[in-house]
Amino acid sequence: MIFSEKLWDNSQRYEIVLKKIRDMILSGELREEQKFPSETVLAREFGVSRSTLREALRILEDEGLIKRYQGVGTFVSRKPMIESGMEELISITRLIEKQGMKAGTKNISIIRTFPSEKEASIMKMSPEQEIYRVERVRTADNVPVVYCIDRIPVKFVKNEFEFKIESLFDYLQKDLGIYISYAVSDIIPVKAEIAEVYKKLNLKSRNDVVLLLEQLHYDDKDNPIFYSSNYFSPDKIKFCIVRKRK
């Protein structure tokens, strides 16, 4: 990676560096997951100070175009495999399939247990009522993209919990006759070290930030049905929200 031109604008040097690197990434001149030279080398090639370079890199990282790992280096981010709006409530299976990829599941665990105090409070149930806790990694074309934890009260399951299809929404509707109508959601950035999410999603660092989507799902009669915590890989899924001015 050699930059032929020196940047001598004394007033806004970091903006010039920022634009140059951004353009190189967006044009494909810098490839996905390509590693940058060290800050010392990069600053010398651009003809700027390391503090100026760091300001440009900080903004590029905020924009999601690069990833910086302490002790490892700086890399061009991978383009997200999945892009979706958040206005429509659809299953993760449908979200993946809409991108033309095959939805899959691995590392599935189903445990019949009692809810924690937090889980019972969120689902508006007694701590003495049992739940099924379902943990699994969802894949898109065999690549891990989401780590899911779902809690379903045992009272909704007629017999033993037999989850043989990919979509939990489909299972609830087809096998249990429960239609999920809407969900109340919280979006929270968290460190990937929580619940060792970085291992489950094959992330490079436990210090990566993942997007946690916590949702309480309701049926068409406003009954809370199940509570989910979905940890999305930051470099594989991108969400957007359309906001309209009233």
Rank of each mutant, 00 (worst) to 15 (best):
C240Y: 05
E117A: 14
M24A: 06
W8V: 04
M86S: 07
I25G: 02
Y132W: 10
S49T: 03
S229V: 01
R138L: 14
R245N: 07
E15F: 14
I108H: 02
I66M: 00
E39W: 01
K200C: 03
D175P: 01
Q129P: 00
R245M: 03
K98Q: 13
V190D: 09
K6M: 01
K19V: 07
P153L: 02
K124E: 13
E87Q: 04
S4V: 14
A195H: 14
I152Q: 03
D220Y: 10
V184L: 11
I152D: 00
R112P: 01
I25A: 03
K191M: 03
P153A: 03
P189F: 13
N207Y: 15
P224E: 02
T105E: 11
L57D: 00
E214T: 13
K238L: 07
N207L: 06
Y198T: 00
S109V: 13
F169L: 11
R94E: 12
Y182W: 05
T52R: 11
E128Q: 10
S38F: 02
S4M: 15
D175Y: 11
Q173N: 12
G64I: 13
S126Q: 04
S126R: 10
R44E: 14
V76Q: 00
M123F: 13
G47Q: 03
I96D: 07
C148H: 04
E128L: 11
L176H: 04
L201M: 04
V197W: 05
A195N: 12
K246D: 11
L60E: 04
Y171E: 09
I59V: 09
V17M: 01
L26W: 13
L203S: 11
S11I: 05
Q99T: 10
I21F: 09
K244G: 08
I225C: 00
G47Y: 10
M1P: 02
K246H: 08
P144S: 06
K236G: 12
R112T: 10
P80Y: 11
I122V: 15
A183V: 11
Q70H: 05
E117F: 12
I92G: 01
V41A: 07
G85D: 12
K67L: 12
E128C: 02
L30V: 02
I21T: 04
Q173Y: 15
N159R: 01
L42Y: 04
F156W: 07
K98Y: 15
E128G: 07
E45R: 06
K244W: 07
